[in-house]
Design a protein around this nucleic acid. Sequence first.
DNA 1: CTGAAAGCGCTAACAG
DNA 2: CTGTTAGCGCTTTCAG
Lengths: 306, 306
Amino acid sequence: MRNHGSFSESVRAKVLAATEALDYTPNRIAGGLASVTSRLVGIVIPSISNAVMPDVLAGAMNVLEENGFQSIIGATNFDPLQEEKLVRSILSWRPRGLMIAGLDHTKNVRALLRKAHVPIVELLDIDDGGIDFVVGSSHRMAGRKSAEFLLARGYLRIGYVGHNILVDLRAGRRFEGFVSVLKERGISLVGEDIGAHPVSSVEAGREGLARLLHRFPEVDAVYFSSDNLAMGAYFYCLENKISVPRDVALFGYNGLALTDLIPQPLSTIRTPRRLIGEVGARLLLQDTETAKVVDLGFELIEGKTS
Amino acid sequence: MRNHGSFSESVRAKVLAATEALDYTPNRIAGGLASVTSRLVGIVIPSISNAVMPDVLAGAMNVLEENGFQSIIGATNFDPLQEEKLVRSILSWRPRGLMIAGLDHTKNVRALLRKAHVPIVELLDIDDGGIDFVVGSSHRMAGRKSAEFLLARGYLRIGYVGHNILVDLRAGRRFEGFVSVLKERGISLVGEDIGAHPVSSVEAGREGLARLLHRFPEVDAVYFSSDNLAMGAYFYCLENKISVPRDVALFGYNGLALTDLIPQPLSTIRTPRRLIGEVGARLLLQDTETAKVVDLGFELIEGKTS
DNA sequence: CTGAAAGCGCTAACAG
DNA sequence: CTGTTAGCGCTTTCAG
């Protein structure tokens, strides 16, 4: 049935006829046990209801399905303990490999992954060391480029609105990169508003900008931890007749589909999310031994909001 | 280890110590083979990069993970043949049950699902017959309510902008319900613009409205196949100084998070997406024999665009 | 090219 | 409560 091995055409035909007649469904559980190697790939992400992960997943699942692999997906909800449970649980399905978002894991998780003896692909972040394959782009660098862009445009009284960077470590790295450029130029952030929510949302952006402008009316540009927040802020400006970018410039991160369709396309950084998933999956399937880091970069979108 | 069966505490302690020492990971593939019943649930959706599915998945995965189940997810990309391949493939993992989006499947797929002898939960649509569990809300009724709402507001020259309803059958059902109310009142649609794309997008909405208004300038309200399109149209109006809802009213479908955060919250219908996933998963796990349909309803959001 | 047989690592059932 | 054993449905290997 798997068209592999040696046999005559007549036998093959008979087998195929029989499977048809009995509507036989092969049992991959048994197959997996016998062959030790399953056509299953584990995927661990923080959350699925989020603008970034679905794109990454789509890319990965696409490549995986094309190669006859099935993905078994789990969400940690940003909880490191949950991540450990999940990894353990997924590993017990003896997947052919494991894709996991980010480079920041507990010691236990790192140990588990290392001992799994299957390719591990860490996605979306390349700013730190990985287990074996690392695919994504630099958040530190994205933060730096964003700062350089705003400074080049002449903004000097810059504020920051973000969601919880203690939970979203990648947003934290962008912030770090952003601030370090300012510091190198002898400038400091005028003010910041960091929400408590672990996840970015449009509503939080609206509220965050309102609070920031209230406390620091002199701000002339705002860097957001994500497009969601920046979009909310943009809507806030629209409603309150705050002229963008004259009164205040806005800069986001992600390059979501929506951001270039609002009346003034958002200035932001676009990441190759789908590609990250695809490349990650491909790396995992072609089991070359050599661990490596693949920097897929990002694109700065000038937009009309800064 | 599974804390089930009878044994002494001392033995349990020894076993636990040993598993720790050897960092033993149980092999669920072997377990599944032996026990015939796996802790795996299959999920089949048309696409993952879409505003609706991630919410449904999040709800389902949440319940599933809480109960020690893992989900194995596949995307059909709206291709019925791909759906069949996927269902076959997932079934060969002998899952405890299968959740699948929609009620529209090929004859083959229906046969496969029926013969699988595991609970099948069909999600998001209740307008037709299902295999055994059906969880969602009525699209026909959503279309009807939308039409009634617009008529009650006094709009009489109504247009429609949609994506490919031959592919997105649920959008087709809404359209049907919408038009049938108009017909009952002796009104007919002024004009429609149906894009070729199978998936709704903000950009398509912008373009669709532009074309529709060009061809039928007399239109006073537009019903969209989804919020994405309606949002794009709203942005188009903002840019072109078309006053909403005075010049043209807009009405969407889905109730996405973004829609109530734009300057004028969108008039739309909000569906309980996450809940649909949760209820579906729960139904699948508690294996009551009785097939049934669960109507989770929807909420009409008045908004400010009509 | 074909047929037979030995497991894969568990679970479940049963005898002590 | 404990120990033993017979498979689960395949893949792989090896002998014809």
